[in-house]
């Protein structure tokens, strides 16, 4: 197995405890921080005969919040689900081109799909806790990837619940069903669950659209905090949200990437007419 040219710092500090996840951690901290480890090259995606994604070329900057914006049905969510190949289960799917994660093509036959997915935490539109207790929700992924030590599991659960600010709220009822939490808490739990398997990316598909404003704000703050350690890709409907937290923005329209660039650039000085119209609210 190849070594990563880059490991984010928090992972490096945990490396000892998490050796079961990566036996070959190669701590080259500080090397090429602004490099992109997620690259999309000439991606075309068809569902049955419909051409959903058209010739997409992208580089997602590392350790930044990237927002994908665009009107409904423009292929944002599809693109996001292509990153971890959750789209595979769709009927009649066909793709061309490549997506490189750490220089590995995720469409390559030799690439193991579960390894790709482990690198990509997913936060879906509606929170979707697993049908088990709060504790097991977080421990599930770690157990699956080989961690059996009870003490370590306890530690991970606590750590991740603290990371999403849920620990104080649930520490006395870790073994209650996760479905009993409020919807905002559930979404944070889902985030913690994703973080527990040590991803490099966080994919969020309109992750705040089902939440109340306060919970929603909570999640946004978390994203800003987490971008120190993770690359965050966010599909969003609300331009305000993108304005608040995006470092990098991708505007999509009818399956094409119209414009991509820093948030500053896109919001203040869009190069494309379509982008400008969309930002002005001409269509949505």
């Amino acid at each position: 197995m190849k070594s990563y040219p880059y490991q984010n710092p928090s992972r490096a500090t945990w490396a000892e405890d998490y050796s079961f996840l990566n036996n070959d951690i190669n701590n080259d901290e500080g090397l090429a921080f602004n490099k992109s480890y997620l690259k999309v090259k000439d991606l075309n995606l068809y569902i049955h005969k419909a051409h959903i994604l058209k010739n997409v070329n992208l580089e997602i900057p590392d350790k930044k919040v990237t927002c994908i914006i665009g009107p409904s049905g423009c292929g944002k969510s599809t693109l996001l689900k292509t990153f971890n190949r959750l789209i595979d289960d769709t009927e009649g799917i066909k793709y061309e081109g490549s997506i490189l994660v750490d220089d590995t093509d995720i469409f390559d036959k030799k690439t193991e799909i579960t390894d790709i997915r482990k690198k990509m935490g997913l936060l879906s539109q509606r929170p979707c806790p697993l049908p088990m207790s709060i504790y097991d929700n977080i421990a599930f992924g770690c157990k699956m990837h080989g961690e059996r030590n009870r003490k370590k599991l306890n530690q991970i659960v606590e750590e991740q619940l603290k990371a999403v600010g849920l620990w104080e709220e649930v520490k006395n009822r870790l073994h209650a069903p996760a479905s009993k939490l409020s919807i905002g808490q559930q979404q944070r739990l889902c985030l913690a669950r994703g973080l527990a398997v040590e991803p490099e990316f966080i994919l969020a598909d309109e992750a705040t659209s089902a939440l109340d404003p306060i919970s929603s704000k909570h999640i946004e703050e978390l994203f800003v905090k987490l971008k120190q350690d993770y690359t965050i890709i966010l599909v969003t409907h609300t331009l305000r949200q993108a304005l608040r937290i995006a470092d990098h923005v991708i505007f999509m329209y009818l399956g094409e990437v119209i414009e991509a660039g820093s948030a500053d650039e896109i919001f203040n000085n869009p190069k494309q007419e379509l982008t400008r119209k969309y930002l002005e609210g001409a269509f949505s």
Binding site: M1, E112, T114, D115, H145, G146
Partner: peptide
């Protein structure tokens, strides 16, 4: 790929 992972896939 760790041996754990290939075992799981098998």
């Amino acid at each position: 790929m760790s041996s754990n992972s290939s075992y799981r896939i098998l």
